[in-house]
Each structure stands twice: as structure tokens, then as C-alpha cells.
Design a protein around this nucleic acid. Structure first.
Lengths: 154, 154
DNA sequence: AAATAATATCTCGAATTCGAGATAATTATA
DNA sequence: TATAATTATCTCGAATTCGAGATATTATTT
């Protein structure tokens, strides 16, 4: 085996290692975050939808799916649940009758105003394993990784 | 608001940002990896179990759960599926009759020998967004993040 | 204008995961 | 040794997510 091949194998080992570590770290972090969110009586998907509406305003149901990265059939389910909890409601679009907006109720608005700072605090605590400068680096690197992963490599 | 408070808010924003980016990157990467694994007729959990047995040898079913990070009830399900596919089989432990080992069949061994290099290659391709030195840094940082997240912070 | 394509939401059934608790075997304690 | 505690696996029902396809509406093409 020539030197060049050896290096390439090493690099693949590093990639594999990174994938494994990324997986584990994410799983640990998600578990903790999930636990925080459970305190508010929600799961991560429900919270993500509320957060989107809270920060970006009313959204067509379909847009929610692409932002929160879940399938259209799953959104219907989540929106139903949040509607039952009276945190959001459906509002038909007057111009395009195919579209239904999801919008925070007063109650939902109030709810998010209360819990979001706590949630942010919790995430900050959970991510306390690295310094701020490292976080900034990781953000850049993860963006590159994510963007590249989405590209077509075939 | 005094200067100190402002900095702390900034830091929390960075943490939140890191969490969001981490989530997104992971989701993109996982989706691609899942797609690769699907080519072999498996899902990520099934593959993770096979990989564990392939690299670490026979494992008590309960050990699999803690390594692959899924609940005991889920393992039963996954092991059942892999057994139906004739890739692994259950083998009772002679010393301790509570324990059942999962072990690769000949077929499973052969299977992994064939596909694992391809899989590794695929992951390497998917993670092509950053250079090798950055990968090494990320591995260290993610380990720190993961370890810290698992700690008790209450 | 009629036919076709595209878009948005929803329904349905299947797959996966979990938590609570059942069962059986082993280990520790009184 | 009998009892209690621990450990390993499994069963069951609920929650969540997906993909395929149904329905309704709007946009495009012929």
C-alpha cells in the first residue's frame, strides 16, 4: 500500500469518527433539551413550531414543514395537537383558499413570552462544555458541513 | 443594562445559535446517511446494531441498548427484525440464564464485510464540507459538549 | 374555455420508538 | 435459607413520524 492510500484511509477513519461523535453529542444534548421542554408540557416538534410562529409570525402550514423539517402529514398532526392545547389556531387565507395559516393565540403568545427565556437559559447551561470562541467556530464549521451534506454528490 | 449583562445575553444567543445549527446540520447529515443505509435494506438502528457486533463481537442484548442508545423495548424489536433477516441470531448465555447474546450469522458477517467499506466511503463523501484538520477539532469539541451535556447540572 | 399541471392540506396505514410493567433469573441481605 | 433487591429480557399500548395517495384550489397550457 503506497503512502497516498494510507492517508486516504486515515481520513475516512476521521470522517467516520466525526460522524459517530456528532451523533452521540447530538443525542445527549437533545435528550437534555427534550427534558427541559417537557417541563412546559410540549415535545421538541411542538416547541419548534411555536418558536417559529413566535419569532417569525403567522405561517402557512406548509411553510412550517419546510422550516422545521418534517413531512406534511406530520405537520397536520402537530398543528392539531397545538390547536387542542389552545396555543395556536388555524386561519384560512382569504386570497388562496388552498392555504391555511397557523397563528399563535393570545394564550400561546403569552406562553412563549414566559417560557422562552427559561428555555434559552437551559440550552446555554446544557452547552456549557465549550467556550464561546469555540462555539463560534463550531457554528461556522457545522454550517459548512450541513450545506455540503445537502448538496447533490451523485 | 450594564455591560456585563449584555455580554451574557450575547453568549446565550450564541449558545442558542449553536444548538439550532447543530440540529440542522445533524438532520441534513443523518438524512443522507439514512439514504445510503437504505440501499442495503436497513435503517440506522439496525445498521448500528450490526456495526456494533461486527466490530466488537457478540453482545448481551442489554449492552446493545446502552451502546446504541435506545430503550430495552426498542432493542427487542430491532433484534427481532435482524433475526428475521437472518443477519444475527440470539444465543443464550450458559452461565447466566437471564442473558441472551446477539451474534452475527455467517451471512451477517459476510454482509458487513461487503457493505461496510462502501458505507464508510459514503460518510466520508457526505462530510466533505470541512477539511481534515477542522474535523479533528470538531471531534474534540463535540466530545466536550457531549460529555458536559450528560453531566448533572441541577 | 377546457384540459393539464402544480400546490396545499389532509387521511390513512405502517414503521419506529418509548415507558410502564410483567416475568424470570441471579445476587445481596437479614 | 428465606426474603428482598437487582438485573435482563420481553409484552403491550401510546406517541410520533413517514410515504402514498385523496381532495380541493389555483396556475399554466393548448
Amino acid at each position: 500500500m503506497v503512502h497516498q492510500d494510507k492517508n486516504q484511509n486515515d481520513e475516512k477513519d476521521i470522517s467516520l469518527k466525526l460522524f459517530v461523535v456528532l451523533n452521540r453529542a447530538m443525542q445527549s444534548i437533545k435528550k437534555q433539551v427534550e427534558e427541559d421542554i417537557k417541563r412546559y408540557g410540549l415535545n421538541q416538534t411542538e416547541f419548534a413550531v411555536l418558536e417559529l410562529l413566535y419569532h417569525k409570525g403567522d405561517q402557512p402550514i406548509q411553510k412550517i414543514g419546510s422550516k422545521v423539517l418534517i413531512a406534511s402529514s406530520s405537520i397536520t398532526y402537530v398543528v392539531d395537537k397545538l390547536e387542542k392545547k389552545k396555543l395556536i389556531r388555524r386561519k384560512p387565507c382569504p386570497n388562496d383558499r388552498r392555504i391555511t395559516y397557523a397563528t399563535l393565540t393570545e394564550e400561546g403568545e403569552e406562553f412563549m413570552k414566559n417560557i422562552f427565556p427559561e428555555h434559552k437559559e437551559a440550552i446555554h447551561d446544557i452547552l456549557g462544555g465549550v467556550e464561546i470562541e469555540e462555539k463560534k467556530m463550531m457554528i461556522d464549521q457545522l454550517k459548512k458541513l450541513g450545506t455540503y451534506a445537502n448538496k447533490d454528490r451523485s
